[in-house]
C-alpha cells in the first residue's frame, strides 16, 4: 500500500472522533493535507445526529433547552453509533443515557418523558392495522371471554412512570407558552395509533400491567389476575380504555 492510501476505517475513526488524526492522504486544493477542511465532515455528522435525536425527542428538547440537549446528544453519539441508515431508529437507548446525566438528577421525570417521546415515534412508524374494538369484544361468546387472547396493535406502547409523565409530556409537545398546572400523582401512558394519528392516553391503575400481560399472549383471565395485584385496578375500566384507544389489533382472517 502507498503511504497516501486512506483506509475507510481511518476515515470513519477521524470523522467520529475529533481527537483522532485526520488521514494524511486527504488533501486540499494545494495538494497538502488539510485537517480544517475535514472539520466539515465532522460537523455534518455531529449536527445530523443531534438534529435526528432532537426530532425524535421534542418534549425533552423543550424541557432541557436546545443547548443542554445538544450537549447530551453529542455525548450520546460519541458512545452510541447508528447501526442503520434509518435515523428514526437511532436513539432507543437515549432515555437511559439521560437517566445517567448527574446534572438532571433534580428532574427525575425527564427520562420517562424521553421514553414517551420514543414510544410516540415507534407508534408513528408502526405498521397499519385495524384495531380490535368494543364491538369486537361484544361479539366474543360469553363463555370464551376468560380464555380470550388478544394481539397487540403494532403501534401500541406503554410507559409506566412514578411521575405525571403524560401531563408533563403533553405540556411540552403542545405549542403552549404558559406552564400548565401539573398533577402530583404518577401516570402511566398508553400510546396507540388506531389510524394515522398517534394518540397518548392516561391509563387507570393496573391498566399498563393488563395491556402488557395481554400483549405478551396471556388470556384475559390470566392478565386480569396479573393486574389485580395493583391497587385500584378495575378490569372493566382498564379494558374499556384499552379497547377505545385501539391497543389491540383485529385478528387477521
Amino acid at each position: 500500500m502507498r503511504d497516501d492510501t486512506v483506509s475507510r476505517a481511518a476515515f470513519l475513526a477521524a470523522v467520529s472522533d475529533r481527537s483522532a488524526a485526520v488521514p494524511a492522504g486527504l488533501v486540499g486544493p494545494d495538494g497538502a493535507p488539510d485537517a480544517l477542511r475535514f472539520q466539515v465532515y465532522r460537523n455534518t455528522v455531529a449536527s445530523t445526529l443531534t438534529e435526528a435525536l432532537a426530532a425524535s425527542f421534542p418534549a425533552v428538547v423543550r424541557l432541557v433547552g436546545d443547548a443542554f440537549f445538544a450537549a447530551a446528544a453529542i455525548d450520546y453519539s460519541a458512545r452510541e453509533k447508528p447501526a442503520s441508515p434509518l435515523l428514526f431508529r437511532y436513539g432507543a437507548s437515549f432515555p437511559d443515557h439521560i437517566a445517567g446525566i448527574a446534572s438532571l438528577a433534580a428532574y427525575p421525570y425527564v427520562p420517562d418523558v424521553a421514553r414517551l417521546d420514543w414510544a410516540w415515534l415507534q407508534a408513528y412508524h408502526a405498521a397499519d392495522a385495524a384495531p380490535f374494538g368494543a364491538d369486537d369484544l361484544a361479539a366474543v361468546p360469553h363463555d370464551a371471554l376468560a380464555g380470550l387472547r388478544l394481539s397487540p396493535h403494532p403501534a401500541m406502547r406503554t410507559v409506566i412512570s412514578d411521575y405525571p409523565v403524560v401531563s408533563i409530556w403533553a405540556a411540552n409537545r403542545a405549542d403552549e407558552t404558559e406552564a400548565a398546572a401539573l398533577p402530583d400523582q404518577s401516570e402511566d401512558a398508553l400510546v396507540t395509533r388506531p389510524d394515522i394519528e398517534v394518540l397518548v392516553h392516561r391509563l387507570p391503575p393496573g391498566g399498563a400491567a393488563l395491556a402488557e400481560a395481554l400483549a405478551s399472549g396471556r388470556s384475559l383471565e390470566e392478565a386480569a389476575g396479573h393486574a389485580a395485584s395493583i391497587g385500584g385496578f378495575d378490569l372493566g375500566e382498564s379494558l374499556s380504555v384499552l379497547l377505545r384507544a385501539g391497543a389491540f389489533a383485529k385478528p387477521t382472517p
Partner: peptide
C-alpha cells in the same frame, strides 16, 4: 459516496478515491 463501514453508519455522504 459511502456511509457505512463495518456495520457503523455515518449520517453523511463520504467521498471515495
Amino acid at each position: 459516496a459511502w456511509s457505512t463501514h463495518d456495520h457503523t453508519y455515518v449520517p453523511d455522504l463520504l467521498p471515495l478515491p
